[in-house]
């Protein structure tokens, strides 16, 4: 129930009591970098690329509000799957860069990718001294795949199972 604002003792004393009480309790500070708190599973830290799933469809680059994804690819011919068939053309990814200096961590690219090639990871310790090094290329984005967590189970009453 809401309390009426008529304190039992003069408010000045009550205020002193609260600060004194807080002084005696342990502080809530986490002494980074000596101690670290693990971020939650869904935290949007950095985006990882699974290269074998990517078909250079350019959906992510088009939907990005900041236009921070740079994709270049070319088509190559592959031998047909069966005898007498047409040669297949596949997209080979030449360049897939995400510029984290521009990225605003909205997640639209991860969401619109139809082939599940992009994943969120909660990894956040990738600050650089030079802003140019914030452009993560294909290799670095592939390395981030190691930090992608398992999708966590959902709450009671949810219909879909945990997706990315």
């Amino acid at each position: 129930m809401p309390r009426l604002h008529k304190p039992k003792m003069p408010g000045l004393i009550g205020g002193l009591g609260i600060t004194f009480k807080t002084m005696l309790r342990p502080a809530v500070t986490v002494q980074y970098p000596h101690e670290r708190e693990a971020p939650v599973t869904r935290a949007r830290g950095v985006i990882a690329l699974k290269e074998e799933n990517c078909t250079s469809c350019m959906l992510c680059a088009r939907q990005c509000p900041d236009w921070c994804i740079y994709i270049e690819g070319h088509k190559e011919q592959r031998p047909p799957r069966r005898e007498g068939g047409r040669p297949r053309s596949v997209n080979i990814l030449d360049r897939f860069d995400i510029d984290y200096a521009l990225c605003m961590y909205c997640g639209i690219c991860v969401e619109v990718c139809p082939f599940d090639a992009l994943f969120w990871t909660p990894e956040f310790e990738y600050s650089e001294f030079q802003i140019g090094r914030l452009l993560h290329d294909k290799v670095k984005l592939g390395d981030w795949m190691q930090t992608v967590p398992e999708p966590e189970p959902l709450e009671v009453g949810a219909e879909t199972k945990g997706k990315k």
Binding site: R3, H5, P7, P10, G11, L12, G14, G15, I18
Partner: peptide, 15 residues
């Protein structure tokens, strides 16, 4: 909220 009420709202100087 209870703490804020004691520390700030109830403080005569704040009033």
């Amino acid at each position: 909220c209870d703490d804020f009420e004691d520390l700030v709202l109830g403080n005569e100087i704040f009033r």
